[in-house]
């Protein structure tokens, strides 16, 4: 049995789908953030798989893009958790359903 590009793309798709489900369905802000991180991981697996398997493609470009994606994911996690802390301090909750301060 040979493992090719499609196998890694399916893994990336599954990770992305589970992350999408988490970020859409979870009530807790930190649970939503976990879903977003899983979606990042699925996209990264897809990028690295293309960089490894496609001939003629610039192999390094895919990996460098993932380096920047991980950098931005780290910044995003720090800001999102700061938002969670600020929300908890103001509303005594991290429930995204009750975070309706901006509702008109």
């Amino acid at each position: 049995m040979e493992v090719g590009l499609e196998h890694f793309l399916v893994i990336g798709a599954l990770l992305f789908g589970i992350g999408l489900l988490l970020s859409l369905s979870k009530r807790n802000l930190i649970g939503v953030l976990m879903g977003i991180e899983l979606m990042f991981n699925g996209a990264n697996v897809t990028l690295v798989a293309f960089a490894r398997f496609l001939e003629g493609a610039e192999a390094l470009a895919g990996q460098v893009l993932v380096v920047f994606a991980i950098t931005i994911a780290a910044a995003e996690a720090a800001v999102a958790l700061a938002i969670a802390m600020a929300l908890y301090r103001r509303r005594q909750t991290v429930d995204v359903d009750r975070a309706d301060i901006l509702r008109g």
Binding site: I18, L20, L21, K26, N28
Partner: peptide, 28 residues
């Protein structure tokens, strides 16, 4: 606040996620 429960939209979210995974796997 440690409870990681779902919102009322969980089945809609599940349907959307399944459709997304199906589309991605079909393309792949």
């Amino acid at each position: 606040a440690r409870d990681n429960a779902e919102t009322a939209m969980r089945w809609l979210a599940l349907a959307l996620a399944l459709a997304m995974v199906g589309l991605l796997i079909a393309v792949a």
